[in-house]
Design a protein around this nucleic acid. Structure first.
Length: 304
DNA sequence: AGAACGTCTCGGCCGC
DNA sequence: TGCGGCCGAGACGTTC
């Protein structure tokens, strides 16, 4: 579920953990955790050895830094270890501050969803810090991953090594964007935008919103884009991502901030999940199609 | 019933 | 026939 703006929102919300020391790690779902640069084979996932190794890598270590790369949250720990967390479709990280009486969290974004007390039946990992702060990992769909990796092995983490450029990096530009996506000249631009090895962090919502902002049809082949198209794509991409981060992301599905509150960028979606509603620019009904297996929303008049 | 914001694996196809 | 690149389908739990 979460894309760059949501993961960035979570990473920023976790900055308060820097300096705290882990005292206890409870793993209720061993299949979510692994140790080392390679992902665990499904066969070994149910052994308890890797759970113990995961706990051992974390316990008694201090959080030195929390950062984001693409859609990964990176905890740098003391003692040369990192934790790489991918929330996939439905992962949530919430933090209960020391002394905070209880934490209520909406596990689903449906209007009638109940607030649930932490930990809930969807809480699969609980990390306790020496000062009493608690981190809960919730995951309705059990797709998320927590990997403990030694610093020396970071370069051997396949997905991390393969990520394309960060769209909000200081040195990112229309030229960098063009060079990155042109590695797949025949791919529809929408699919290229969401390919993490070409460009980091953009998923379905922000690809649709970016292409609307850039007035480009999602099916356009990468190689068909002209100089002016690249320029609008670059500007649209940064504008959409920056606005989404400022509003703490889109709380579609299950995304929430670390204090349990929701992001409000969903209010500003111009095409995503707006099939049949009118285009905010020209009034034409928004269309939905399937591209590369994902729902794709666009204005048939504005985007060409 | 069909779809959901992510990614990985597998199998088929194309071209050298 | 062999190999790599490329691409689409399916799989992964669960909920509404």
């Amino acid at each position: 579920m979460p894309e760059l703006p949501e993961v960035e929102t979570v990473a920023r919300g976790l900055q308060g953990l820097v300096g705290k020391r882990i005292t206890r790690v409870e793993v209720r779902r061993p299949k979510l955790v692994s140790v080392g640069p390679k992902t665990l084979s499904p066969k070994r996932q149910h052994s308890q050895l890797h759970t113990r190794a995961f706990q051992k890598a974390l316990v008694d270590r201090r959080i030195a830094k929390v950062a984001r790369r693409a859609k990964l949250i990176q905890f740098q720990l003391s003692g040369g270890w990192w934790i790489l967390v991918h929330l996939k479709m439905a992962g949530q990280i919430v933090v209960q501050q020391k002394g905070q009486r209880r934490l209520l969290v909406r596990l689903l974004n449906s209007p009638h969803a109940q607030l649930e007390k932490m930990p809930s039946k969807h809480t699969h990992i609980i990390i306790r810090f020496t000062d009493g702060t608690l981190l809960y990992y919730n995951d309705l769909r059990l797709f998320g991953t927590w990997r403990a990796v030694r610093s020396a092995d970071l370069s051997r983490v396949a997905d991390l090594a393969a990520y394309g450029p960060e769209p909000l990096a200081r040195n990112f530009s229309a030229k960098v964007l063009q060079a990155a996506l042109r590695r797949r000249p025949n791919m529809p631009i929408k699919q290229a935008l969401t390919d993490q090895t070409l460009l980091a962090g953009v998923g379905n919502i922000y690809a649709d919103e970016t292409l609307f902002a850039a007035r480009l049809k999602p099916t356009r082949k990468v190689k068909s884009l002209k100089l002016a198209d690249w320029s609008r794509l670059f500007t649209g991409l940064q504008k959409v991502l920056r606005h989404a981060i400022k509003t703490h992301g889109s709380s579609v599905g299950e995304f929430i901030r670390v204090d349990g509150s929701v992001g409000t960028y969903g209010r500003y979606h111009k095409v995503y999940d707006r099939k049949g509603k009118s285009c905010p620019r020209c009034g034409t009904p928004i269309r939905r199609m399937v591209l590369g297996g994902r729902g794709t929303h666009y204005c048939p008049r504005c985007q060409r």
